[in-house]
């Protein structure tokens, strides 16, 4: 694990009108590191992710990606910069098939002079899709099938496979296994381990303590819009983390926070 810093935020803040959903978040992610973000509902986890992925515009604060300061105007900006997000709501179009979804918004095309009517290069997209799915060891019987006809696990795998297809520089997963069964969860966790082996940095938002303890290097705890703890997984345990989440404890560095 090198010490290059993938993502750094400073004083990242988001207010929705009078609601302070996120307040002064300072965060760092090192190359190849897998970090979990935990916290109760409404603690600011998803808000934090929406700011760094450009889905929403931050109220205040600065973001650096691989040392360069970034200001994303929209999610496509973030994607082009190499941040791939698996959203809580999946962000898949049910009536389209796997390649269509993987390349949605950035289709491979030919005859580009036709503007919005430029032609889709189905063959190249299919080949790239198969390559991407093989790389993440995702098993799908027929990639021409529409998402609607797939199981929850397969859908989640498709969403995750997007990251592998596009050589992302940072992967963010927002509760990827919340709606999945045991086997499907195991399948998704395997993909996460593959990413770890491949040295791909990851931010994982999860409520699942066992999963977090299994998969990540570091745990960040959010409470009431603030970061209250930064814990090394090897030096902590489930009970400890729960204490931070509920507010029974606050990290030494964050004494003034909540």
């Amino acid at each position: 694990m090198s010490d290059e810093i993938v993502l750094k935020t400073e004083d990242l803040t988001k207010h929705y009108g009078g609601v302070h959903a996120l307040e002064g978040a300072d965060f760092e992610l090192k190359s190849g590191e897998h970090v979990a973000i935990m916290g109760d509902n409404g603690a600011g986890k998803s808000t934090f992710v929406r700011q760094i992925t450009g889905v929403e515009q931050k109220t205040r604060g600065r973001i650096w990606l691989y040392g360069d300061e970034v200001n994303f105007a929209g999610p496509l900006d973030a994607r082009e910069a190499g941040i791939e997000t698996v959203f809580q709501t999946l962000a898949l179009a049910d009536d389209l098939d796997v390649p269509d979804n993987l390349f949605l918004g950035r289709e491979m095309t030919k005859w580009n002079w036709l503007g919005p009517f430029r032609l889709l290069d189905y063959k190249r997209m299919r080949e790239a899709t198969v390559a991407g799915l093989e790389r993440t060891a995702v098993k799908i019987p027929n990639i021409r099938n529409t998402i609607r006809n797939m199981s929850g696990g397969q859908r989640q795998c498709v969403a995750i496979a997007r990251t592998a297809t596009f050589h992302s520089r940072l992967t963010i997963m927002d509760e990827p296994t919340a709606a999945l069964g045991v086997q499907e969860t195991a399948q998704v966790e395997n993909i996460v381990r593959q990413l770890k082996e491949a040295g791909e940095p990851l931010i994982l938002i999860s409520h699942n303590m066992r999963q977090v303890m299994d998969l990540v290097d570091r745990i960040i705890v959010f409470r009431r819009g603030r970061i209250v703890a930064n814990l090394d997984r090897r030096e902590t345990d489930g009970q400890d983390v729960v204490a931070y989440i509920t507010g029974a404890k606050t990290g030494a560095d964050y004494a003034g926070a909540a």
Binding site: G74, P75, A93
Partner: peptide, 11 residues
Amino acid sequence: SNEDAARMSGI
């Protein structure tokens, strides 16, 4: 099919 997904994909 999914307007939010389309928007998040940058369309």
